[in-house]
């Protein structure tokens, strides 16, 4: 059970949060311009890395804010947390 440092509320138990999958996958601005393959790439393809992964999390039972997390999926170490729109930390 992680201890997650919500950038708006501070440290809270993982129970209050919802994981939202891989981060930094931007919704295409002009979906109609994309081929089926390009659209499928956005819609379905996720990396699911063993190691350092960029993820979206939501403080669902708290401030309801979304934010980003850098987590090592092999040992669950949370390496960084930053707000939506902020630049990801250098690896």
């Amino acid at each position: 059970m992680f201890l997650i440092n919500c950038p708006y509320c501070g440290e809270r138990d993982q129970q209050e949060f919802k994981a939202g999958g891989e981060a930094h996958i931007e919704r295409p601005k002009q979906p109609t311009e994309l081929s089926d393959d390009e659209w499928a790439e956005y819609l379905f393809m996720r990396k699911n890395i063993k190691g350092v992964q960029f993820e979206r999390w939501n403080h669902a039972h708290g401030c309801r804010k979304w934010f980003n997390m850098v987590r090592d999926t092999s040992n669950d170490e949370i390496k960084a947390i930053y707000k939506m729109g902020e630049k990801p930390p250098a690896q």
Binding site: E26, R27, N58, R64, K65, W66, M84
Partner: peptide, 8 residues
């Protein structure tokens, strides 16, 4: 809806 508003 919150997700789209906040992130996209």
């Amino acid at each position: 809806l919150e997700d789209y508003l906040q992130t996209e």
